[in-house]
């Protein structure tokens, strides 16, 4: 008995370690790619404080913050998706079901259509606006899917989410038709999921959300396990199903909203990250949550790095790279779930 347990733990540990090593490799590659090339040796020298001023500027002020944002946002989106999938018992659920990125997008577009000349705002103004927009959208989806007698029913949540997202996105399209070309361009880039916050300010704004919400969600790992048995079994085991669902969905919404507001509308990470992790490490959230975070971080950093390299000197937005990989994966999932 114990032998089997030990072997399993070893297996889990090696999966987490492999993810970490892969992230490290992509990190080094990413540090090396960009408009001005530095050799790996120069990168290492600079990282350990032995580079010249120009090298330091490139690495520490341009590349590193962007890499850190990609890692944080990727991890956050994947953990958010992991929560959504656990609670809804649906492998196709992800934060977009809560209308997160549509809410954020709509809020930004609303602001720009009423104050079209005010793009010169303090750095964190637009992310904060986007954050508020996403939370409002999530609250709307909750509100519409909550039922008095039965509480939160996963299927209803998914359907409401799809409807709300479609509505918000239609509204956004109508509004953005009235924007000037430049502003429209700006919005389009944001929606495509360019990692737009690329300074340390954004890292500092995102980090506390990630740390606090990760800690909370990880503390709830066992509850998430129990909720993934469905409402009946979970209640029978003594979980306060409605309360826990609301708390965890709020955490999922908060995570996704914080990420999307600095990374733009990046889809699929919240779907693929946790799904990949679940296939490798199993349904136990104590291991699944960290594995999802690592998978999400790896995916988004890789996507952003590819996007920056492939068409140099111009770049493809990370969100588009993710979608190019994500869409076929999504179809594959759909095909599989038909059996």
């Amino acid at each position: 008995m114990n032998g089997v347990e030990r072997r399993k733990n070893l297996q889990r540990f090696s999966i987490l370690a492999t993810f970490s090593v892969l992230i490290l490799i992509v990190f080094v590659i990413s540090m090396n790619t960009g408009f001005s090339r530095l050799s790996p040796l120069e990168v290492f020298q600079t990282l350990f404080g032995m580079g010249n001023e120009k090298q330091q500027l490139i690495l520490f002020e341009f590349r590193l913050p962007r890499i850190v944002i990609s890692l944080l946002a990727g991890a956050g989106l994947a953990v958010s998706g992991c929560i959504m999938q656990g609670i809804s018992r649906n492998a196709l659920a992800d934060p977009s079901i809560l209308g997160i990125s549509h809410g954020a997008g709509l809020m930004v577009v609303l602001y720009l259509s009423f104050f079209p000349t005010h793009l010169d705002v303090p750095v964190l103004f637009l992310p904060v606006l986007a954050f508020i927009g996403s939370l409002l959208a999530a609250a709307l989806v909750f509100g519409l899917s909550y039922q008095k007698y039965e509480g939160l029913l996963p299927t209803r949540l998914v359907l409401t989410g799809v409807a709300v997202a479609a509505g918000l996105s239609a509204l956004m399209t109508v509004l953005s038709l009235r924007l000037s070309r430049e502003l429209y361009q700006f919005v389009a880039v944001w929606l495509a999921g360019s990692i737009w916050g690329t300074t340390w300010d954004y890292v500092l704004a995102l980090l506390p959300w990630i740390v606090v919400l990760f800690a909370f969600v990880y503390y709830k790992a066992l509850v998430l396990d129990v909720l993934s048995f469905g409402n009946n079994v979970a209640t029978g085991l003594g979980a306060s199903v409605s309360k826990e669902q609301v708390k965890l969905l709020a955490a999922a919404a908060g995570l996704a909203a914080a990420c999307v507001s600095v990374s733009g509308g990046i889809g699929f990470i919240g779907l693929i990250g946790p799904h990949l992790a679940r296939r490798l490490i199993g349904p136990n959230h104590k291991y699944l949550l960290p594995a999802s975070a690592l998978a999400g971080a790896l995916l988004l950093l890789t996507a952003d790095t590819i996007g920056r390299t492939i068409l140099q000197p111009s770049e493809i937005h990370a969100g588009i790279v993710v979608a190019i990989i994500g869409a076929p994966y999504f179809l594959y999932l759909l095909a599989r779930s038909n059996h």
Binding site: R89, Y219, L222, S228, G230, N232, V233, L237, P283
Partner: peptide, 28 residues
């Protein structure tokens, strides 16, 4: 034991039975 319960994909029997201890556990 409800009628027709379903377990998440990949959960082992021993893990399933372990969750039966949930009411007696706290935190982690």
């Amino acid at each position: 034991l409800p009628q027709n319960p379903t377990a998440p994909e990949g959960m082992t029997v021993i893990d399933l039975v372990t969750y039966g201890r949930f009411p007696h556990q706290r935190g982690f």
